[in-house]
Write a protein that binds this DNA or RNA. Structure first.
Lengths: 156, 156
DNA sequence: AGAGATAGTCACGTTGAGGGATAGTCACTC
DNA sequence: GAGTGACTATCCCTCAACGTGACTATCTCT
């Protein structure tokens, strides 16, 4: 029962891949002037506009204090806008502006191309299997990817 | 061509999984008084004892400056030891001590159990496929998991 | 022998995450 | 319907992590 070598550990593979993706994506998005988290914000707003900052922060796994700055940055660039929340007056409703929608489209293309390159060593079938298994595992370990509008779209 | 929702992006899944693993592993290793990076060091030394600090730092993706502190910590606890490098007198040869070997075994058990739990939602076959695909992707994107002794064991 | 590169170490500045506190608001209870 | 506890967004502050640059000793190549 000799222990597994470090790179045989699935845990190691996952963290390494995660770090790799994060790093490369950060670099690829520099020309657009945003970071992966900003892309995440825009994506979430595409799915459902007018979320509160808290509803953005949770799925992105960022601290509420940090979210203030993130929204500030995108708002200053005219990509999004804080409006009054229609239901909860404590919260801000974050809304996409046309420029934000446009930038998201560009960023999405960059990300998608990167992903294609990354999975380029696999056949189309294998790639699909890979992504599917990742989703299954994510779900199993309780990573809330259930933020699709409707499922948890409670604007309470 | 509506863009993919955030959680449909493979890149997002990977980073999320990576962060999840990192966080949980960090927590699980607290009782043993080490962090994932320390476990990585011990693992690498199990595979090949007497590596230089640089040879530890690179595969673990940590800065050489940081490695100084990591080695310090484990050395103070009597888990490893700096000796003179047999070939390169600039470098230190980092060697495992018996206590380090023992701690690694405990940590390895913890990590392995965590991995089993994480992949628990998959059948044995699926899990094997998943890990295999991860390795393929890692290799394809150039993550050097080729640190197995012999392949890059140049002690120059 | 000399020039350039490398291993390990230290000192420094910068950055980022998180804790605590606060104002405004909500929701629930008595 | 007044009060209590919880929650949103914000600010301030602290602390740890990271990278840069500099420095010494050593190696390698010419």
């Amino acid at each position: 029962m000799t222990p597994q070598p470090l790179y045989g550990h699935p845990a190691c593979l996952m963290t390494r891949l995660g770090v790799h993706v994060e790093a490369h994506l950060t670099e690829l998005l520099v020309p657009l002037g945003i970071q992966p988290r900003h892309f995440g914000m825009l994506s979430l707003l595409i799915e459902q506009d007018g979320r509160s900052q808290h509803q953005l922060a949770e799925p992105l796994n960022v601290h509420r204090n940090v979210m203030v700055g993130l929204v500030d940055e995108l708002e200053q660039r005219g990509l999004i806008e804080r409006r009054r929340h229609p239901v909860d007056r404590r919260a801000h409703a974050v809304h996409l502006l046309p420029a934000g929608r446009e930038l998201h489209a560009e960023a999405d293309a960059v990300v998608t191309e990167f992903e294609a390159k990354m999975l380029g060593g696999l056949s189309a079938e294998e790639a699909a299997t890979f992504v599917e298994l990742q989703k299954r595992v994510s779900e199993h370990v309780g990573i809330s990817h259930e933020l699709h509008p409707g499922l948890r779209g409670d604007l309470r």
